[in-house]
Deep mutational scan, measured.
Amino acid sequence: GATAVSEWTEYKTADGKTYYYNNRTDESTWEKPQELK
């Protein structure tokens, strides 16, 4: 099967917290998305 390329990108805020942003859905989350686990 084809490997899905994750749409999630990991970013850090100014105070060093990590969050994740999805370019396709324009969604952001503090929790690590399922695709990255």
Results as ranks from 00 to 15, higher is better:
V5E: 12
A2D: 12
S6D: 09
A2L: 14
Y21W: 04
Q34N: 14
T18R: 05
A4P: 13
R24S: 12
L36A: 09
S6M: 08
V5S: 12
Y21M: 04
K17E: 09
T29N: 03
W30V: 07
Y11P: 00
A2E: 13
K17S: 05
V5W: 12
K12R: 13
T29W: 07
K32E: 08
N22G: 00
T25R: 02
S6R: 07
K12S: 08
Y20T: 00
K37R: 14
E10P: 04
E35R: 03
G1N: 14
K32S: 05
L36P: 08
E10Q: 06
K32P: 09
T9Y: 09
G1L: 13
S6K: 07
N23V: 12
N23Y: 12
Y20F: 06
T18G: 03
Y20I: 00
G1K: 12
A2P: 14
A14N: 09
E35D: 11
K17T: 07
A4D: 13
W30P: 07
Y20Q: 00
S28D: 04
Y20V: 00
E35N: 09
E7A: 07
K37Y: 14
A4K: 11
T13D: 13
Y11G: 06
N22W: 00
N23S: 15
A14S: 09
K17L: 10
L36K: 08
W8T: 01
E35K: 04
Y21N: 03
P33W: 02
T9G: 06
R24T: 14
Q34W: 10
E10S: 03
K17H: 09
S28V: 15
N22R: 01
E35H: 08
S28G: 11
D15G: 06
N23I: 12
S6V: 10
A14T: 09
W30Y: 10
L36W: 07
P33S: 01
E7T: 05
D15T: 06
E31K: 05
G1R: 12
T3R: 10
K17Y: 08
A14I: 12
Q34H: 10
E10H: 02
P33L: 03
T9P: 00
V5N: 12
S28E: 10
P33K: 02
E10R: 01
T25E: 02
S6I: 08
D15W: 05
T3V: 12
K17I: 07
E31S: 07
E7N: 07
K12T: 14
T25V: 01
K37H: 10
N23T: 14
D15A: 06
N23C: 15
K12E: 07
G1S: 14
L36T: 07
K12G: 02
K17R: 13
T25F: 03
T29L: 06
K32V: 11
Y19I: 10
G1W: 11
T13Q: 05
E27A: 04
K17F: 06
P33E: 02
L36N: 08
K32T: 09
K37S: 13
E31C: 15
